[in-house]
Amino acid sequence: MEYVLAVILLTALVTAIVLRPLVLGVGEDDRESVNREELEAAKEAKYREIRDAQLDFEMGKLSKEDHRAIDRELRAEAIEILKQLDVVDGETNPV
């Protein structure tokens, strides 16, 4: 009896929680904010790479020429990400 009652109560509770988004909806699709979050993560990863290369250079592991080439490439990639972020921001907050 305890088992049956518990199953009924727990099922009712779980059903109320999981069906809520289906019944009430989840608001408008926030695809832009999703893209923004992913781009922010990519940006931070690229920044980390630039800092790593800088630290390697300062510690003498990378030659000046190698560092310059790597840094230029990484910064170009980072700027691409920043441009994409601005596009997303423009879509999210149109002037």
Partner: peptide, 14 residues
């Protein structure tokens, strides 16, 4: 369906 995805995620919390 975003609603179904969110519902699935809530099911994991449950």
């Amino acid at each position: 369906s975003r609603a179904a995805v969110v519902s699935g995620r809530r099911a994991i919390y449950c």
